[in-house]
Design a protein around this nucleic acid. Sequence first.
DNA 1: TGATAATGTTTACAGCGTCAACATAATTGC
DNA 2: GCAATTATGTTGACGCTGTAAACATTATCA
Lengths: 198, 198
Amino acid sequence: MPSLDKKPYHHGELREALLTAGEAALGELSPENVSLREIARRAGVSHAAPKHHFQTLGELLGEIAARGFDRFVENLRSAADSGANQSAAARLQTMSRAYLRFAELNPAVYGLMFGKRERCVTTPNLAKSSLAAWSQLETAVAAIVGPQKAVNGALLVWSSVHGMAQLRIDRKLPPHIDPNASLEAVMRMIIAGLQAET
Amino acid sequence: MPSLDKKPYHHGELREALLTAGEAALGELSPENVSLREIARRAGVSHAAPKHHFQTLGELLGEIAARGFDRFVENLRSAADSGANQSAAARLQTMSRAYLRFAELNPAVYGLMFGKRERCVTTPNLAKSSLAAWSQLETAVAAIVGPQKAVNGALLVWSSVHGMAQLRIDRKLPPHIDPNASLEAVMRMIIAGLQAET
DNA sequence: TGATAATGTTTACAGCGTCAACATAATTGC
DNA sequence: GCAATTATGTTGACGCTGTAAACATTATCA
């Protein structure tokens, strides 16, 4: 009698399997080694099978970036909620911690989300989530400096936190710097700068 | 009689030619299309010729990044010099403008310099130049907040400017933002934040 | 001047993304 | 319920890539 657990010809959940295999590969391999063929291998499928679900590698990575954005926005939202009864400044600091934490835990996906869009295709909901994250930040900043100056204030915060995340991921910070302690000090200065604007 | 301008078997200045061809390619093509073979083509030489001057593509790109760093440090230095008789705050602002300008004019090289070191190899003088840039910045910041708090202050400035550069290069800024005007506003807030530390 | 080192070319190999042709299974229409 | 169609797999091919090895040409030096 033939073995009962023989692999069927059709996978059934291949699209989903490719996305999770891709995320796993991004977590384990250096980005340049994350290839369509490698992801297909991990999903236990031939190298051309993904074609029926993602036209190109860029489309697959774009979808992974979109999912990353959803998780990212959710993380920031729950951080903001958890600080609902704090001061606006403390809430902003909490959000910044969540931001940096996400970047540290998901460096490759973070790179897809915020890096140049050469490796992945920008899907509509990716653009939407990106804008959602921005207005989330702008709202938190507006609570400190008022809506008038919220744009530049949000730019200050976003640039700084994004810059720190990037520098840390790319290991470009001088070795004598402790990123967590520094984030607190940097955020303190940022908030002072914001408050000087009022 | 044979033509006099016939190409000689040996190039003569191939190493230099490869570096400039590489920089040109980085300026014209999207980074993923900058290949060793493409650079060799531009230098008018067979695809394996670079091997005698650069062991790998990463070595070539690493050397290009190192040269970029030299120009970068020089730009910042001359910006700092030009503001020698200004206040420390104004001098820092001048340096920031030079920083952002360099990133805008040389996005691909900037990416090699500050991005992940997967595409290019870190050569010793690259590390040296990087550290030089950092202490240059730290000195400028120390003139405002004193040496004690210069480290965190420099981190604030570097993160912010690097973040803005990256966001602008990657076109991740909301479209309604004018980067140049925003830089001024952001730097004003940063300097206020630094001065609040004293 | 002749050996040797430097610096080119050619050829080869494996991995990549993508496409086209084909195989198999699920679904739909009658 | 069965045939036609559609969805989703596999296989093989193409041209690209980086890199290595073998070979050709020229420059350098004893």
